[in-house]
Write a protein that binds this DNA or RNA. Structure first.
Length: 253
DNA sequence: GCGACAG
DNA sequence: ATCTTGTCGC
């Protein structure tokens, strides 16, 4: 048995140290598609808070990639250890997210994270960090941009345009995409996390967008993390079909 | 010094 | 993220 090669981030109250750690880990991000085709299972992740922020609540939802049927859901609650600091989001939320991931009955082929992938000052947004720590293919789906600029976006569903980091001059390297997942809605900011290419990111997201702005994996995790609405019933038969463990589909909350 | 600033 | 009612548009 070997120890976890990459432990979840630990906050030591030192912003500069955390930034250095991000720069180092960003070195290990791989932007090449490296996941099963066709995709069998997907997982969506998001975080919410309880007790005025004292408790960090991470939600994970495993779905069947072919039908988008929920196969399992998990919620992990951990004491909140640091405040929100732009650019250091993963140090605050990743421990809970990894806990939720490990509680899933099966390992997902691709992980959708609420937040940015490499569209980050040091190219290690929470989705990229999640990929490095877990070793799994991941991509980021954010509702607002953290850094970068992009041209005007067409109103048509599915339209996308590059998001580039212009902080070091024009044109600037591409760090992600602004994606019109739904007409009449603000665009989504999509970027590769780990083991996913820049070119595939928009398609991977649109492939799982139905009638809402957010793709199903993230949309469902969002509701579970924020304790809103109800989760569609999990399909135990599908979980079995997928050749996954016959773990009881305990749906928390 | 003045904005920008994932969740 | 979270606190919250009504309101605008398809």
């Amino acid at each position: 048995m070997s120890a976890d090669p990459t432990p979840p981030p630990a906050w030591h109250g030192d912003v500069r140290r955390a930034r250095d750690e991000q720069a180092t880990l960003a070195t290990r991000v791989r932007l090449r598609d490296d996941f099963p085709r066709p995709l069998r299972t997907l997982a969506g992740f998001d975080v919410g808070f309880e007790d005025s922020g004292a408790i960090t609540r991470a939600a994970a939802v495993l779905l069947d990639a072919a039908t988008l049927a929920p196969l399992a859901t998990r919620v992990a609650r951990l004491p909140t250890t640091m405040p929100y600091i732009p650019g250091l989001l993963s140090f605050r939320e990743l421990p809970a997210l990894i806990t939720a991931l490990r509680a899933l009955p099966a390992t997902p082929d691709l992980c959708f994270i609420d937040g940015h992938g490499i569209a980050h000052p040091r190219r290690l947004g929470i989705a990229a960090h999640f990929g490095i720590v877990s070793g799994l293919p991941s991509l980021g789906v954010a509702k607002k941009k953290l850094v970068g600029k992009h041209a005007e976006l067409h109103e048509m569903r599915g339209a996308f345009t590059p998001l580039r980091d212009t902080s070091k001059g024009l044109p600037g390297e591409q760090i992600g995409w602004a994606l019109r997942s739904k007409p009449g809605c603000l665009p989504l900011f999509v970027s590769p996390g780990h083991r996913v290419s820049m070119a595939s990111a928009p398609e991977l997201v649109m492939q799982f967008v139905t009638r809402y702005r957010l793709p199903e994996p993230t949309r469902l995790a969002d509701r579970l993390a924020s304790r809103r609405g109800a989760m569609p019933a999990c399909d135990s038969a599908a979980l079995a079909d997928a050749g996954l463990p016959m773990t009881p589909l305990a749906t928390e909350e």
